[in-house]
Design a protein around this nucleic acid. Structure first.
Length: 400
DNA sequence: CGAGATTCATGTGAAGTATACCTTTAGGCTTAA
DNA sequence: AAGCCTAAAGGTATACTTCACATGAATCTCGTA
């Protein structure tokens, strides 16, 4: 390939048949035409939300279940159908789907309401307005016309954890002030214990109805994977056993279908890059590693500088023995001095460490070492093979 | 030997500060009649 | 005189700092068996 030069490579690339037929089918954003093994939940949700077609207010719904159990998918599917029916019958139903976890889109009260208003076509500046004002804009946007508003809050636990549960209370309260329009909330959460920490008032209003999504088992995962891979890959590309192995991998992690699909897709990409004609079981192992690497690298790269320096300090320690906040702060300060960055206080760094923990890059547990004080015991939750790579990416980014 | 008191190194909460950004308002300048 | 632009004033959200207090088990202290 290299001898022929780049032109040759591209020509080759074009001549080579892709293993994929429709890769998008395996992407997380894809909503399949039909959903299997979720019929019960699907019907339940449809039943609950159906009243809005008669312009009555449906109950607020709360969807529970671990990641990749089809909550988002089901919610999207139902809302798509509602939307198309509403369009046919000329009903004004608006559906807003917001993912509260996607960084910086909706992680404070202000940003969430601002985002809601933006979805309704209003211009909201990123800061400067009183939160109350943004509520007003949002309120005006829906009260001017008669509309059924369906707000789907994905990963709502993340939002509440960071910004408190008043937001939800305020949103449900708006309803009583609206005359023509109505708001229905659909909350989606991965955290099964989420509602326990909620204000009772909020809890009762948010979860008038609840739907629990059980994890898929290995057989169901196989069904799903087969169904999708039929469309995604060309015929005969998958070696026997590949689907089974993907399903098994994902079933081991509480039946996460999203992960299984991603595994399959990335395995296909790897095989393709290697100019292989078939996807084999070996590719899946490679895929698992690559997914983890991409996930972590993505988080790491998009993190602000101070967070990066902090993380670098953490990584610079030997991974086997446990590390404490004090050690990290010392190392952090040294790095700051070296790059010419004004160091933050330990108080703030402590919070940053907490944020890193939330992101799942590290494991930080508060422990008491008795006579020797109280601190966080920190360990890495990323594979040791990645540490080197991430470290160098960080060094480049902070300019070491 | 065992119950309480001590201690350490940080966790954690509240309040204050700096910064970036927003809207409103008032004054000054331009323009058109 | 009306319209437009600009700068200042007044306000907010967010990231961070400062201050002060809370934690919780290993260790120490001291009374008791």
């Amino acid at each position: 390939m290299t001898e022929k030069g780049l032109g040759g490579f591209f020509e080759n690339f074009l001549k080579k048949d892709s293993l994929f037929n429709q890769k998008a089918v395996l992407q997380a954003s894809y909503t399949p035409g039909e959903i299997i093994h979720r019929e019960k939940e699907l019907n339940l949700l449809a039943n609950i939300l159906a009243p809005c077609l008669r312009l009555e207010k449906p109950s607020n719904v709360f969807l529970y279940g671990k990641t990749g159990t089809g909550k988002t998918l089901t919610a999207k599917y139902v809302s798509e159908h509602l939307k198309s029916i509403a369009q046919n019958k000329n009903l004004s139903i608006k559906i807003i789907h917001i993912n509260c976890k996607l960084s910086k889109v909706a992680d404070t009260e202000y940003r969430l309401v601002a985002q809601l208003a933006r979805e309704l076509g209003k211009e909201i500046p990123p800061t400067g307005l009183p939160t109350e004002e943004v509520y007003k804009i949002f309120y005006n946007a829906i009260s001017t016309e008669k509309v059924q508003l369906l707000i789907v809050l994905d990963e709502i636990d993340q939002l509440v954890k960071r910004a408190g549960d008043e937001i939800i209370y305020n949103l449900t309260r708006i309803n009583s002030e609206l005359e023509h329009s109505q708001i229905t909330l659909v909350g989606i959460s991965n955290d099964l214990l989420f509602t326990d920490h909620l204000d009772p008032r909020v809890k009762s209003s948010l979860s008038e109805e609840e739907i629990v999504f059980p994890p898929y088992n290995a057989l169901q995962l196989q069904d799903i994977l087969r169904k999708r891979s039929e469309r995604a890959f060309k015929e005969g590309v998958l070696t026997p056993g590949v689907v089974e192995k993907c399903a098994a991998y994902a079933a081991r992690e509480h039946g996460d279908a999203r992960r299984a699909l991603e595994l399959l897709r990335v395995a296909g990409e790897i095989a393709e890059r290697d100019s292989q004609l078939k996807v084999t079981i070996d590719h899946i192992d490679g895929a698992e590693e690559k997914i983890e690497k991409d996930r972590v690298l993505d988080i790491v790269k998009t993190q602000p500088k101070q967070q990066q320096v902090t993380l670098h300090a953490i990584l610079s320690f030997k991974k086997n023995n446990s590390i404490f906040t004090g050690d990290i702060y010392d190392s952090y300060k040294k790095t700051c001095a070296r790059v010419g960055l004004r160091p933050l206080t330990q108080r703030r760094v402590s919070d940053i460490i907490g944020e890193m923990d939330m992101l799942g890059i590290i494991n930080a547990k508060v422990i008491s070492k008795g006579r020797f004080g109280r601190t966080r015991e920190i360990s890495l939750s990323i594979p040791a093979t990645l540490v080197q790579k991430i470290s160098s990416v960080l060094e480049q980014s902070i300019g070491l």
